[in-house]
């Protein structure tokens, strides 16, 4: 894999952040409606990593054990997407969303399902925004809840490109930082870069 393959220009990256921010904006509306208080989501930046930089991932997520929610999307690109919070923070998110005092101190089935839906709302919104902006359609699986180490849960193949988005999750009086991760093949990554170029040309 040559290194040029796994880069986006500044313009491309900005466009992608813009598209994802539209997506998480919609997701924030849906989540606010569910919890009855203002939830706001934003994506301040993204990073592109390839399989050789996987070591850096752990330090970026700042936690070895994670409970991500994933969905597979297929269309003009195929990607496995994850919503990841550092260990313990997943529980905080669920606790805030359910507005209950969860005393058991672990993610039970009900909490796992709630977290799956939160991931589902955010990931679907991002993909919808991408689908609208880049004028391509996708299909998706239902969300799946995982629990384990970063190596086991996130990395399924040897060769991949990883788009890592930092997401700020703000619920009144609380802010939780997480990550959205899109795992895709080099071919899909190039397909995405080309589509973003079309999008930039169309709007400029």
């Amino acid at each position: 894999m040559s290194t040029e393959l796994t880069k986006l220009t500044e313009l491309q990256a900005d466009a992608l952040i813009e598209i994802f921010n539209i997506g998480v904006g919609h997701a924030a509306n849906s989540l606010s409606q569910i919890v009855g208080e203002g939830v706001s989501l934003s994506i301040p930046r993204l990073e592109i990593l390839d399989s050789s930089q996987i070591e850096e991932l752990s330090s970026m997520i700042s936690s070895k054990r994670i409970c991500p929610v994933s969905q597979d999307f297929s269309g003009f690109i195929d990607t496995r997407a994850f919503l990841v919070f550092p260990e313990g923070k997943s529980m905080d998110v669920v606790r805030r969303m359910l507005g209950e005092n969860i005393g058991i101190g672990d993610l039970g089935e009900m909490e796992q399902e709630a977290l799956s839906e939160i991931g589902n709302i955010i990931l679907n919104s991002c993909i919808s925004a991408m689908s609208d902006s880049l004028q391509s359609s996708f299909q998706s699986t239902l969300p799946v809840f995982h629990r384990g180490s970063i190596d086991n849960v996130l990395i399924s193949e040897n060769h991949f490109v990883l788009i890592m988005l930092h997401i700020n999750f703000a619920i009144p009086s609380d802010r939780i930082d997480g990550n959205l991760i899109f795992l895709l093949s080099a071919t899909s990554f190039n397909g995405l870069a080309a589509k973003i170029d079309d999008f930039i040309q169309a709007i400029s």
Partner: peptide
């Protein structure tokens, strides 16, 4: 949320989950 999940499926081909604990 159910309506928008149905719309997501029909318009975008996306699948959704509605958790009991949230709805």
């Amino acid at each position: 949320r159910l309506e928008s999940a149905i719309n997501d499926a029909l318009r975008h081909g996306l699948s959704s989950l509605l958790a009991q604990s949230l709805h």
